[in-house]
Structures are given as C-alpha cells and as structure tokens.
Computed example of a mutant assay.
Amino acid sequence: MSDENEPGHGNSPAAWVAVIIMLVGIAGGTLAFWFDQPVLVFASVGVVVLGLIAGLVLAKLGYGVNGTRYAPKSHS
C-alpha cells in the first residue's frame, strides 16, 4: 500500500512552521474568546492568517514538500 513517490503529506519545514504559528493563533484566540477580549480574538485571527502566509512564503522559497531545499527523510 506504500507508494515510493509519496510526497510526505506536508511533512516539510514550511508546513511545520505554518501549523505551529496557526496553532498558537488558535490557542490564543480561544483564550481571548474565553476571557471576552474581542480585540485579542481578532488579533489571533491575524496570527492565523500570518501562519498561512508564512507557510506559503517558505514553500515558495523551496522549503515545501517539492522544494529544492527540502530533503525528505526515509521512512524505514
């Protein structure tokens, strides 16, 4: 069932950075919502958008799954 040409399901530095930034934004937004701080909720939405942009920029710089600077690790 394993395909040798499998791209890695986003297991790249660009994907990791994007997901970590977005998780921080979501966690901060959840806390801000819980404490009824609407300004911080919207700021957290901005952090999530920045995470998306950071992931796209890193992918364009070659750190994505098919990028020139990404070397996939073997799954042994």
Rank of each mutant, 00 (worst) to 15 (best):
M1I: 15
S2E: 13
S2Q: 14
S2H: 12
E4S: 15
E4L: 15
E4P: 14
E4D: 14
E4K: 15
N5K: 15
N5S: 12
E6P: 07
E6T: 13
E6M: 14
G8Y: 11
H9Y: 15
G10N: 10
G10K: 09
G10W: 05
G10Y: 03
P13A: 12
A14G: 11
A15F: 07
A15K: 14
A15N: 15
A15W: 13
W16N: 15
W16P: 15
W16Q: 13
W16V: 14
A18M: 10
V19C: 13
V19D: 12
V19W: 08
I20R: 10
I21D: 06
I21V: 04
I21C: 03
M22Q: 14
L23T: 11
L23Y: 12
V24N: 02
I26H: 01
A27H: 11
G29C: 05
T30E: 06
T30F: 02
A32P: 03
A32D: 02
W34I: 11
W34Q: 11
W34N: 10
F35A: 11
F35G: 05
F35C: 04
F35Y: 12
D36Q: 13
V39H: 02
L40D: 02
V41T: 06
V41P: 10
F42I: 07
S44H: 00
V45R: 01
G46W: 00
G46S: 08
G46E: 03
V47P: 05
V48W: 02
V48N: 11
V49Y: 08
V49G: 05
L50E: 05
L50C: 08
L50P: 07
G51H: 01
L52M: 12
L52P: 10
I53D: 02
L56H: 12
L56P: 13
L58C: 08
A59N: 04
A59Q: 00
L61P: 10
L61E: 03
L61F: 07
G62A: 04
G64M: 01
G64K: 00
G64I: 00
G64D: 05
V65G: 05
V65D: 06
N66A: 06
G67K: 01
G67M: 01
R69P: 05
A71P: 05
A71R: 11
P72C: 01
P72N: 00
K73V: 06
K73M: 04
K73Q: 06
S74C: 02
S74Q: 07
H75C: 02
H75A: 03
S76A: 07
S76W: 08
